[in-house]
Each structure stands twice: as structure tokens, then as C-alpha cells.
Design a protein around this nucleic acid. Structure first.
Ligand SMILES: NC(=O)c1ccc[n+]([C@@H]2O[C@H](COP(=O)([O-])OP(=O)(O)OC[C@H]3O[C@@H](n4cnc5c(N)ncnc54)[C@H](O)[C@@H]3O)[C@@H](O)[C@H]2O)c1
Ligand SMILES: NC(=O)c1ccc[n+]([C@@H]2O[C@H](COP(=O)([O-])OP(=O)(O)OC[C@H]3O[C@@H](n4cnc5c(N)ncnc54)[C@H](O)[C@@H]3O)[C@@H](O)[C@H]2O)c1
Lengths: 218, 218
DNA sequence: TAATGTTTGTTAAACAATTCACGACATTAA
DNA sequence: TTAATGTCGTGAATTGTTTAACAAACATTA
């Protein structure tokens, strides 16, 4: 745990978002940006942005704003972008295939290195340049993979989770509706798409005037 | 806005999750459940569950727990109105196709009624039983559709958003990395998968001992 | 150089959500 | 009936997050 451990979780969740937009500004050739401009772009209150940035010290200059280049460099270092973390995907079905085809590298450095499935027809092929191995080979192939994306059927979720953890995985992005059980020290983020849709509709009906956003919700 | 408008947003986001698990218990034939049991299943603190339920009055019985049948009936009524909300999906690509193939009806009630794409090759076909229309027909076909799932390329996101809103859509589940701009009264939930992955990795590196979950979050 | 405008970093207050802890009551077993 | 146990609902305490407001710092202009 580093010196950044006192940073609020709400702030930590926004960091990748900031990073991407600052990167966009850099590509567009912008040299400076104010918290107000950034606020319009990412839809986060400007005071919240200043507060978030201030946890890392004084990144900006009063009366000027933030230097895009400097900010970008800072975020790159902070988010450990230089060292890309290998990720595995389990379950190359509808959702898994979509993720493999999508190039997560485009705007950031995380990349799916390998995928696993139980379907012999899929094993040995590649999807989006990622090799697909048989799930039986999980323990053999998973080296230095710290994070996994879980897109298997609900019924397999807990079993696969345990095998992943035994193989050294400490972070799981879980797209199954199962609320999986993991030991201390393993981080799980649930993205439950059915819940997201229902929750959106609930908010539409019951909080019609507000205008909050979310998900990664979470 | 109903009498439920004072319910905390954090609570509202958990309702569909509770609903699904209570439904599972009912199917399993369980007659009663305690906040503790439910807590183990959904990974939400039992005090939080009791507090959440208590916003709706006294649903349980002291010394006994909650009656599964009663709870289920209650949640169905509370979330029932949502069943009737038709949803449209825009952009039948990798992600859009996965969503259409997935039967959102399985464990819940919301359903995608129609889809739109700009690709003439896709128009006229069906995916997962959902008809695909050309995006030019958006204004013609979108009747009584209140919510939309947005899975178009980044560059199209804002334009399509404006057309959706002009056609009466008041809720958008946005999977593009664009932070779209909408007028007051329109609800947007962003699910930014690249951010979710980066954020998971950030938490793994910087908060290695905790065990919080998320996404949707809201 | 002085005057003016801009924007940060931070304080304090407001707001929101979670968790503790306990009284009240239900159930069960003896 | 009584005692032991289990469980809810909730006030109070705690923890976490957002926002408003503003002095100080700097930029810009004349
Ligand atoms: N597709 C969606 O839009 C969507 C939406 C919400 C939730 N989900 C959830 O995401 C998960 C995946 O959904 P999907 O639509 O891609 O399902 P899918 O059936 O298309 O894909 C599941 C894949 O997992 C593979 N698999 C099965 N058992 C396995 C095992 N033991 N080890 C490794 N691989 C195994 C299957 O061969 C298949 O390729 C499910 O849990 C589903 O509930 C999907
Ligand atoms: N696939 C993923 O895993 C993933 C992950 C993160 C984010 N996303 C985001 O989700 C969105 C969709 O991703 P994808 O991988 O499905 O992309 P995709 O290119 O496979 O699909 C986009 C679809 O939108 C259609 N389209 C293009 N212009 C349109 C218009 N004006 N009106 C209607 N339809 C139009 C295209 O014909 C295509 O079918 C993108 O914004 C992407 O950044 C995808």
C-alpha cells in the first residue's frame, strides 16, 4: 500500500476518467485546462475535480489552470500506465467475444492477454488477436496474470473464481449475476447489467428531475 | 415523483439486486430469510439491508426474519411499473449484439423491444428476436420508448443522444466512453468498461487489503 | 507598475450513506 | 410458564463525499 492509500475511493474511481480526457486534450494539442473546462467534459463538479487533484499535491497553478502535459505525465505515473497489467478473460461467449474484439489498448494500457473457454470448438482459435485456451489449462497458462474478467454462465462463476484465486488472481471484474465469495485481499467489482438497466428505469420513474450519473456502480 | 422519492439513491440501486435474490429464494422454495442470510448472498451488510427495507415500512417480523413470499410480492409491486417500460438499443455492433442475444427477461422484467443501426446489412434482420431498423427511422419507430441503451461508436454518441431525447427518451444507459450532454430531466447512467477495468487495477495496487465492490454504481 | 481578472487549493459546512448497538418482540425448547 | 435465542427496526454515532466560498497566487493588460 502506497502513500496514496488515504485517497477516497470515490476519487480513485474517477482517476481513469480524468486520465482519458486529459489524454484527449493532449492529442488535440491543448496546452492548458481549467477545472471548469474539465468539468464540462467529464460531468464532474469543478470543485470536486480540484479537490480530487489536490489529494496528490499542487498540480495546477493559480490564475492559470493545469498544464496538460504535466497533468498527463502525472496521471500516467500514478495509474501505473507504463507497466501494463496482464488480464485474462474467462468465458468467450456473447459478452466475452465483444470484449476481446474491443481493443482496450486504444486509450489505455490494460490489455487482455489470454482467454479461456470450455467449448472445444473455440479452443485454439483467436478472437481479436487474443488466444483462447481450454479452461482445463487455466492453472498451466495463468502466469503473472493478476486480474480476470469473468463472463462465464452464472452456474460456473463461483467454481471458476476459486480456481482463479488459487492461481494468484487478486482482482476480478465480474459480469455474471452471481455475487461471488472471495477471501480477504481479493478485489471484486461487480458489473451487473440487468441491475443497471432496472436501476436506470427506477430512477427515471422516481427521481425524474435529478440528473446524476453512475454505474460503476456502484 | 412518488412517495418513495426520499429513498436514498444508494438504496434504490440495490433494490433490483435484492429483488433478484429474493426471487431465487422463492424458486428454491425457501419460506423465510433473515437479513444475515441475505447479506451473505448479496454481499451487503445486514444492517444496511434492514435499513434499506425499513424505508418501505416494516416488511419483516422481529425474531423471525422476512417472509420470502411477502417480500417478493412487495418488491414486485414496487418495481412492477418498470416492467412496462420499453427499451430500445442503438448500435448493433459487438456489444449491442451481445445484449440482444442475452435475454434480459430471464430474471427480470425489462426487455429490449427494438434496435437501430446505420449498417444496411443489419437492417431488416433480427438478433435475439429483436427487430433491427435503420437509424433513419428512429423518429418514426420510437413510440412510447422511454429508455435507450447506447452502444454506438464514440463519434456518434452525442448526435444520437440528441435525437433520442427529441423523440421522448428520458433515460440512457451509455456504454460509449463519451460523457454525453443532456438537458435537465434526462437521466444518464454511464458504464465505462475501460474505466472499470483500470479502476479495478488501481484498487488492486493501492488498496490491496480491502474488499469493497462496485460498478453500478452509481 | 498597478489594476483587473482568473483559477487554484483548501476550509468548513452540508449532505449522504453506513454501521453500531440496543430495545422490543417472536419463536423455540424445556 | 419461563428462559434462551434470534431477529427486526431504528436512533445515534460514524464515516465518507460533495459543494460553496474565498484568500492567495498568478496571469494579463494597459
Ligand atoms: N450477454 C449479455 O448481454 C449479458 C448481460 C448481463 C449479464 N450477462 C452475464 O454474463 C455472463 C456471460 O454471458 P454471455 O451472454 O456471454 O453467455 P454465453 O453463454 O454466450 O457465454 C458463456 C461462455 O462461457 C463458456 N463456458 C461455459 N462454462 C465454462 C467453464 N466452466 N469455463 C470456461 N468457459 C465456460 C461457454 O462456452 C460460453 O462461450 C453470464 O453470466 C450472463 O448472465 C450477460
Ligand atoms: N465492445 C466492447 O467491449 C466495448 C468496451 C468498452 C466500450 N465500448 C464502447 O461501446 C461502443 C460500441 O462498441 P462496439 O465494440 O460494439 O463497436 P462496434 O463498432 O462493433 O459497433 C458499433 C455499431 O454501431 C453502428 N453505428 C455506427 N454509426 C451509427 C449511427 N449513426 N447510428 C446507429 N448505429 C450506428 C455500427 O454499424 C455498429 O454496428 C463504442 O462506443 C465503444 O467505445 C465497447
Amino acid at each position: 500500500m502506497s502513500d496514496q492509500s488515504k485517497i477516497p475511493q470515490a476519487t480513485a474511481k474517477r482517476l481513469p476518467l480524468y486520465y482519458r480526457f486529459i489524454n484527449n486534450l493532449h492529442i488535440q494539442g491543448k496546452l492548458r485546462v481549467s477545472s471548469k473546462e474539465l468539468s464540462d467534459a467529464v460531468k464532474v463538479d469543478s470543485a470536486t475535480i480540484r479537490r480530487d487533484f489536490s489529494y496528490f499535491g499542487a498540480l495546477g497553478k493559480k490564475g492559470y489552470g493545469y498544464n496538460v502535459e504535466y497533468l498527463l505525465e502525472f496521471f500516467r505515473k500514478t495509474l501505473d500506465q507504463d507497466e501494463s497489467t496482464p488480464v485474462a478473460l474467462i468465458g468467450v461467449g456473447n459478452l466475452g467475444t465483444a470484449f476481446l474484439n474491443y481493443n482496450f489498448m486504444k486509450n489505455n494500457n490494460t490489455k487482455i492477454e489470454m482467454a479461456f473457454d470450455a467449448d472445444a470448438g473455440k479452443v485454439g482459435t483467436e478472437v481479436g488477436g487474443v488466444p483462447i485456451y481450454h479452461i482445463d489449462q487455466l492453472e498451466d497458462k495463468l502466469h503473472d496474470v493478476g486480474a480476470a474478467i469473468l463472463t462465464v454462465p452464472l452456474s460456473e462463476a463461483q467454481t471458476i473464481t476459486e480456481r482463479l484465486i488459487d492461481s494468484g488472481v487478486t482482482g476480478i471484474l465480474n459480469f455474471t449475476p452471481a455475487r461471488i465469495t472471495v477471501p480477504e485481499g481479493v478485489r471484486v467489482h461487480h458489473i451487473d447489467l440487468a441491475v443497471e438497466l432496472q436501476s436506470l428505469i427506477y430512477f427515471m420513474k422516481h427521481y425524474p428531475l435529478d440528473n446524476e450519473d453512475d454505474a460503476e456502480e456502484e
